[in-house]
Design a binder for these strands. Sequence first.
DNA 1: CGCACGCATGGGG
DNA 2: GCCCCATGCGTGC
Length: 849
Amino acid sequence: MTSTSGAASSSKICFNSDCNDLKSERPRKGWRLRTGELAELCDRCACAFEEGRFCDTFHSKASGWRNCESCGKRVHCGCIVSFNAFTLLDAGGIECLACARKNVVLAPNSSWPPLLFHSSLSERFKDYSAKGWSQLAGSGPVPWRLSIPSLEKTKIEDFSERLMNGPLKLGAPDILENGNAGINCEEPPSSCLTKSQQPSLKEEPSNPPFGLAVPYTSPGDANGQIGVSGTHLRPNPQPPLAKQLHSNLHNGLDSSSETQIRNGRPRPDGRGRNQLFPRYWPRFTNQDLQQISGDSNSIITPLFEKMLSASDAGRIGRLVLPKKCAEAYFPAISQPEGLPLKVQDSKGKEWIFQFRFWPNNNSRMYVLEGVTPCIQNMQLQAGDVVTFSRLEPGGKLVMGFRKASTASATEQDNEAKNSSGVSMHGDAEMADPTSWSKVDKSGYIAKEALGTKLAASRKRKNSMLGSKSKRLRIDTKDLIELKLTWEEAQGLLRPPPNHVPSVVVIEGFEFEEYEDAPILGKPTIFATDNSGEKIQWAQCEDCFKWRRLPSNALLPSKWICSSNSWDPERSFCLAPQELTTEQLEDLLPHCNPAASKKMKAAKREPENVDALEGLDTLANLAILGEGEALPASSQATTKHPRHRPGCSCIVCIQPPSGKGPKHKQTCTCNVCQTVKRRFRTLMLRREKKQSQKEAETTCKKPQPSLPDKVLDDDPVPRTNAGNSSPNVKKVVSEGSDNDPNRVKSSTSPFKGQIDLNIQPEREEELSPGADSGSMMRLIQDATERYLRQQMLSSGGNSNSDATQTPPGGGSEGEKISSSVNLGSSHRDSDRDHPTVFSIKTSAPSSATG
DNA sequence: CGCACGCATGGGG
DNA sequence: GCCCCATGCGTGC
């Protein structure tokens, strides 16, 4: 903590905006800021914060107050300050820390002090906040841009909100309660991770076989612990100092107690804790995971990762663990002998390692012994990265890996080699080779560097394994790796070919459910031609020409003219493109800033958020390689080099089509949840659009001149008149968020591919105007406009609903299908999706493969 | 003699 | 100057 100085500390004024007092010489720490630092407060505010009175004092009039479901106590859930003061209940609602704690105590897994929980929670929250921040901030290279709920993105509140909405089980620590409630985080920073898990434990006493027992012990610090999403590292390289604080404050770290609890583990001095490298920080919170996954059973909490050193990968069989991580995520051990730790690898295989430490300079060096078999099994070598995650309930420890192999570039084919050990299922195809390789490169810099360096010389220190800094850097880049909004991701989902989704009604909305996990397909643009026939436009991978296809055509992610069996005349690249440039532009308004902005402006739906989170979760699962969510196919996965373990992109979360578990309607797995959410979102969006269109139609405002903007400008249907769908209108979500953060799909629309791995830096190239707006959105917008124009011209009215969907290629007639649905399934039978912008990828099955 | 174990060393941040 | 951690290396089996 000490080191925390930072931006937060730069000012001499209390960080509390509602207090302008000067900080004392030794400012007191408050909550963690997104930068990872702790807010520095004046004594008065610090006291309030530490006593859990901060929100009561300064935010009494703010929104976000809720009552504890158990005791009725009023808890402020709307800001970062009290992030850890409550726990989200599975059934909804929140519980103050005190009540949560009570429950926790009951937890079966007594081996770990509930405290941990708290700490975990706090940690989580921290992460959360951190995450949120970054996301919010947007500017950063945050990989995933989750869409933030409708809340204002900019505020921390969002986080809370999210949390609130989320189905977390965590027991949250509550600062309010005694300050120390329990948490003993010796090492404040890390501990929190587990919190969420803990709850689970409670719920499910019987821990899975794995039992990893990873105690949630630790507090160490890990900053990142919690889960957050994993995969990627936090964008910010800043140390998680805040955690400590939080822990302390919120969790109630009592230092004294902590210590004891920890089995005598030496507590690291504050310093160490803080120092966790960002790279270790998980991005996603368990909550995120949970929410998404919905699957209470499997919540993956990415813990940390480590690039294997020569020693680690050597025959000695000792894997040196980053001290902080070890202390934070692994069971506390007081004896050098440590204890056996059961770890499951990405293939579901269990390994038992001896987790121990060596006294070293008044400190400890933690190592996992007996890892050789595992490392060999995974074919890992120095430079590769092993990842550790915790599978919640049960706390099963999961070990994934990511190959660094430089050579790998060539070997990409080998899934194993490629990327992560974890499974990334997706279709490899999504990423085009090109991007892929790029990704790869940038993806893991360290590795890359490694490779190179290695080749050059194996000097250990300098090179490969690189310095810590390098690692950090890697993280950063990794962060960048995937930019996809939930909605965008949604758009990518499609039902597996030949699968007829069953319809499930959720919350009044019908959703399609697939027996098999949806797949990712090639992005296409659905539209209705002049004759009212529904069609879709797909772009050839080779010549980039857009070809008209039946609306029900499912395309592999890589589709080329020669595969155009629907139109022999255009089944070769030399054939002219039917679409004129203008038309194409209309369909793909990639450069329309207005649109993007508009999109941005759109409110986000909480659901989207959840979904996003879910994706992350899924990704994490994938990473973990737990068999559950992602079948072992780590293999099959995609070739998304940039997708690190934990990657939650659609590609990574989806098992290859046709593979993977079957999903029943009642299935609550991550994939299903995600799909459900996706549909929900789509529905809402669609309705909204429809209503808007109707409204517009009614008004006849269609201005030919402003085609592009028309829709944009009125995202919100002022008119209810069109009430085709009452509810929806408000939801403007379409785009969702907007935020700059969002990723754009990188791909250039023209290519018709969505590059999940887009590099932010390159965004500009691709879509100048849209920075944050994703291409998808743009496309959508464009499509809408286009359709709209058509409508106008044809005088059709849009009703909308009907449109496209018919599985059969519906030809329903509505000419106007104005909206573009991303990724809707073809089958959308629902009238709902007027236009579908589907991105399909190839299912594995699909040819591309 | 070879292997493991565990501590020591020292570069690097 | 401290801490972390990769590796070296002594010791014991």
